[in-house]
Structure formats: C-alpha cells, structure tokens
Design a protein around this nucleic acid. Structure first.
Lengths: 120, 120
DNA sequence: CCGTATCCAAAGCGATACTG
DNA sequence: CAGTATCGCTTTGGATACGG
C-alpha cells in the first residue's frame, strides 16, 4: 500500500479520482456537462452560445472526447440544414450527479471570497 | 440565464464547478489531497514517495498553489535537518469530502472497464 | 531534508479561414 | 448548421543540477 493510482504505482486504483479527472480535465468539459444536463439534448450552435468564449474547434474536440469516453451521446440527422443533437448518457448523468458536491463547494467558496472582498 | 460561469459571461456563477476545477486542476493535486487526508500531516519527502513519478519541482509548486488557495497548511520547523509538515485546512477537508462521489464514480468505471477487457 | 533554478518538450487552447 | 484545417502562442509538466 501507501501509493496512489498513477501509472507505474505498485498498487494503483486506490482513490479513483484521477480516472475521473482524465475525463473532465478539459478546460470546458464540466461546463458542457452542466449545459447538457439541463435539457434532454442540445444542438451544437446552442452549446456554443451557452459557452461564451469557446471556439468551434475546442467545442468539437471536447464533444468528441466526451463521446469516446461514453459520457455524451451524439445523434446526427440527415437533413438540410444539418441537425445534430447532443445528450448525456446514463453514465454522463451519473458523472454530473457526482459533480454536484464539488459544485456546491465552489459556490460556497465564491460567496466567501466575495464577502472578503467587500470587507477588505 | 442561459449562460454559464466563464469570465465574460453575463450572469456567471451558475454552477460553481469551474471554480473548483481551477483549484484541483493541476495534474497531481487530487492525489496530493488524497495523500494528505489519510493522515493528520505529511512531510515533503513522504509525499514524494507516495506520488511515484512526480518531480520535486512539480510537487513543490503544487503545494505552494494549494497553500495559496487555502487548501493546504504548511508548518516549517527550524531544525537541522529541516522538517516541514503539510496538512489539510478545514476547507481542504471539505474539498476532499466533496470529491468522494467523483472518486466513487471513477472506481465504478474502472471496474466496469476491467470487466469489458476480460470479456472482450 | 527540503526545496530552487534553469532549460526543454509537449499539450492545450485560441484565432482564423475554409467546407459539405 | 455543423463542423474541419492550419498555425502559433501560452501554459504545464518533466529532467537535471544545485543551494540553505
């Protein structure tokens, strides 16, 4: 024992968190999850509008990675103009649920820091 | 509504997760938290041994960032040879607690993937 | 023992232009 | 509408050597 789960560690898989971090590690990924969990599905342009500042390249690549990781489901309709719908898989919904305590921690923290600023 | 909490978004601070991600975003940070939560404190060299593959530079800089973020507490004893003890702050313990559902999700996932490999 | 200093490689991200 | 292609920058992390 006594080592954590990095590749090369004698007895890895102790805490499981870095597996999760690899999935949500991209700069915008948790925000994509959040945007998807509010609705049954979202279209590409809709996500782009919900994430001001993201580029098409980054949105597309993050969506492809989340799809490869089984977090996001993609349905492409063969129409003109094109229509593509993104949604969370069951595992994606579980991931999003598991993220909620972390979100709550972040919110508490931003409130506390806001109070500091007003006090200081 | 309808936008998330990136800088520049009209009504940020909706989900709070990216604030948390900024704190735990470094490659080894969640592992450092995990290593610290098991004991009241850990010494520098102890952490280095617990995290096989991490370099001294990265460990030191991650610890300094976590300290600046109020997650880790550092106590330096003026002795020869030097002794420094790192521990979680209260906020660090809360963060670690908030990480547990994510860790559970990651463990379930690695189990599921292991079964796939043995089946395929 | 507990770090810092320096340099380098790789990844990630952003800007822009273009396509089916 | 929903992407892909290309390029360059910035950030991050790794290797190694050295210092209090």
């Amino acid at each position: 024992m006594a080592t954590l789960n990095r590749p090369g560690a004698p007895d890895g898989h102790v805490c499981g968190i870095d597996m999760a971090m690899e999935v949500i590690g991209g700069k915008w990924k948790v925000l994509i999850l959040w945007a998807l969990h509010e609705q049954p599905f979202r279209r590409f342009g809709e996500l782009r509008r919900l994430l001001p500042g993201i580029t098409e390249k980054v949105l597309a690549s993050h969506l492809r990675e989340l799809e490869a990781d089984g977090i996001v489901h993609r349905v492409s309709y063969d129409e003109v103009p094109p229509r593509v719908e993104y949604s969370l898989t069951d595992d994606g919904r579980r991931l999003n649920d598991a993220l909620q305590p972390l979100a709550a921690w972040g919110r508490e923290r931003s409130i506390a820091h806001g109070m500091e600023e007003r006090a200081g």
